[in-house]
């Protein structure tokens, strides 16, 4: 779960937080594509290093470290499956190049995690919804998106209360075989589902009472406005992307970092 923790929005007022979500998305996508573009360790490491100052500007180092820690398991799997498959496909031998590629793929994975963290940790769902609105996504979807996020903590509380109540009535969730364990979740799931149905009725009443759907031309309290720094980031991102694509297509491929040697 700690991997997901790294994607939960944390309040802040850094330069990155204040970027227009669309611009930030573009920036993330550029990092994302560049990470996909290359297979070599050197450029991938450079991309990783470039993101670190951004993480610090956004003041999300703590959450970012958390999500990195959470991805250690997956990263290890990526690294070792690569090595193992090289080992077997090459007739039970390994060389430095294989290690380098396996490392590169692992760093690529960490790049993806970091770029997504940068986006989601610094973009409030409210801003995200504004961006969706600008993208002409119908408001109903947008509303559903925000409502889903809004009720995550409420439902989590409720699930906790239900578990507490049932455990107080002697329900022991961790005892028994796999099948009986599943059956033991019925007393938790049923109240949760029934409460959610009740809640949805309440919500519908409250929406009606707030004139939901009164006009097609909804207004919005906050509007997204592109500022100077947003345009600057757009330009930098696009130039960077162009340079990287050029590098990939027209420049000779990168030399390996370590000299070739057979390891096993």
């Amino acid at each position: 779960m700690s991997l997901l923790e790294g994607l939960r929005f944390t309040r802040g007022d850094s330069l990155i937080h204040r970027l227009d979500p669309r611009v930030k998305f573009l920036m993330t996508m550029v990092i994302f594509t560049s990470a996909i573009l290359f297979m070599d360790l050197l450029p991938l490491l450079v991309i990783f290093l470039v993101q670190i100052p951004l993480v610090f500007i956004a003041e999300i180092q703590q959450e970012w470290t958390k999500s990195l820690k959470g991805s250690v398991f997956l990263a290890t799997i990526i690294f070792s499956t690569n090595l193992i498959s090289y080992y077997f496909f090459q007739g039970r031998s390994l060389n430095t190049e294989n290690v380098e590629t396996a490392l590169a793929l692992t760093v690529r994975f960490l790049n993806l995690i970091t770029s997504f963290s940068l986006f989601f940790l610094t973009t409030s769902p409210d801003k995200l919804s504004l961006a969706l609105e600008k993208a002409r996504i119908p408001y109903e979807f947008n509303f559903a998106f925000i409502t889903a996020i809004r009720f995550v903590p409420v439902l989590a509380d409720e699930a906790q209360s239900i578990m507490d109540a049932q455990r107080s009535r002697g329900l022991e969730l961790d005892k028994g075989s796999f099948l009986t364990k599943i059956r033991k979740y019925i007393p938790i799931l049923l109240p949760l589902i029934i409460n959610s149905i009740r809640r949805s009725l309440d919500l519908a009443e409250a929406m009606e009472s707030r004139a939901f759907g009164a006009t097609r031309d909804r207004t919005n309290l906050f509007e997204l406005v592109m500022e100077g720094r947003d345009y600057a980031v757009v330009v930098i991102s696009l130039v960077l992307l162009a340079a990287l694509v050029y590098m990939k297509l027209y420049l000779p491929p990168f030399e390996p970092l370590f000299p070739y040697r057979v390891l096993i």
């Binding site: 409030s124 769902p125 409210d126 509303f143 925000i146 409502t147 996020i149 809004r150 409420v154 809640r199 309440d202 919500l203 409250a206 929406m207 009472s209 707030r210 004139a211 939901f212 759907g213 009164a214 006009t215 031309d217 909804r218 207004t219 919005n220 309290l221 906050f222």
Partner: peptide, 21 residues
């Protein structure tokens, strides 16, 4: 809890007004 729709206070107060345009 079942009549709050937004993630921040100001935005929630705005909800009814936004709906009316």
């Amino acid at each position: 809890d079942n009549q709050i729709f937004a993630l921040t206070v100001e935005k929630d107060v705005a909800f009814g007004l936004e709906n009316q345009g």
